[in-house]
Amino acid sequence: MTWVNDVVQGILLGGYYGIIACGLALMFGVMRIINLAHGDIAVLGAYLMYLLLEHWNVSPFIALIPVLPVMLALGYVLQRLILQRSLRSGVLTPLLATFGVSIVIQNALEQGFGPDVQSLGGQTGSLVTAAWQINSQVSIAALSALIFGAAVVIYGALQFFLARTAAGRRMRAAAEDPDTAELVGIDSRAVYARATAIAVGIATIGGLALALRTTFSPYAGPDQLIFAFEAVVIGGLGASLWGALLGGIVLGVAQTVGAQINPEWSVLAGHIVFLVVLVSPRGGLLTLRSGGGGGARAALQRLRAS
């Protein structure tokens, strides 16, 4: 019966992967960029909250309030200063640029905070230990449930934004065809910068979730990036916005069930599920194999307000 608990814990863990994957999927859908610094940005957000909490004895959730706008601004600047310029020489140059950003963030964090692992879990009071005992096998930790709930809220809010607001419509238009969007007066560079800011903002919430549920260190970013990417691909590479959350859940279940078989297999099991989904004919749970990233744009298109 323990596997029932593993699956439940895996689904809840999937909520965290969903949050981390959300910004990655958004940037890929809008700009066709994969931001290799995505995981490091989440960790940077966690460190900014850690820095605040060192001087200010409040809940980490309060610390998110001042950190979030800082990170949104950082995302905006990242797009305007680095990504937009490198986009001019093809989709592969931003990849190299973001890899450079990743290395700079990791080592700057180690320089500033040292290599020790940190956690914010201790500063949330009873939330970390609270749990609902469903039966003798299955219990749901309040923190895991909260993170999963946050994931659902983030995805719902993003869908509402893309489908129902004018700014969301502009974003879908720029994703679909930036040149044509320019013709009807949409400044695609501003839209891209806004998309990057949102992606970085969501990654910051992911960083808070990471810091609460476990520990983080300056070099924790690449792992988060890989999990996020696996979630996006398992979900069908932007075939639908919610696909990334579904992919995160599949990844989470694979890891918890894998860990049950052998604790050392946890991460490996996730990688293997990712590779198996990749070789499967459909290559992603929700993809209709419309060729590479075409699905991402089609998906943003399908979100058109009805």
């Binding site: 890929f28 066709r32 960029i33 994969i34 290799l36 989709v91 592969l92 990849l95 990036l225 890989i226 990417f229 696996e230 691909v233 590479l237 990688h271 990712f274 590779l275 990749l278 290559g283 590479g292 990233g293």
Partner: peptide, 13 residues
């Protein structure tokens, strides 16, 4: 099976 940026990170996995 991966294209562009997906290839980069797919090979990393």
């Amino acid at each position: 099976r991966f294209r562009g940026a997906q290839f980069a990170i797919g090979t990393w996995v």
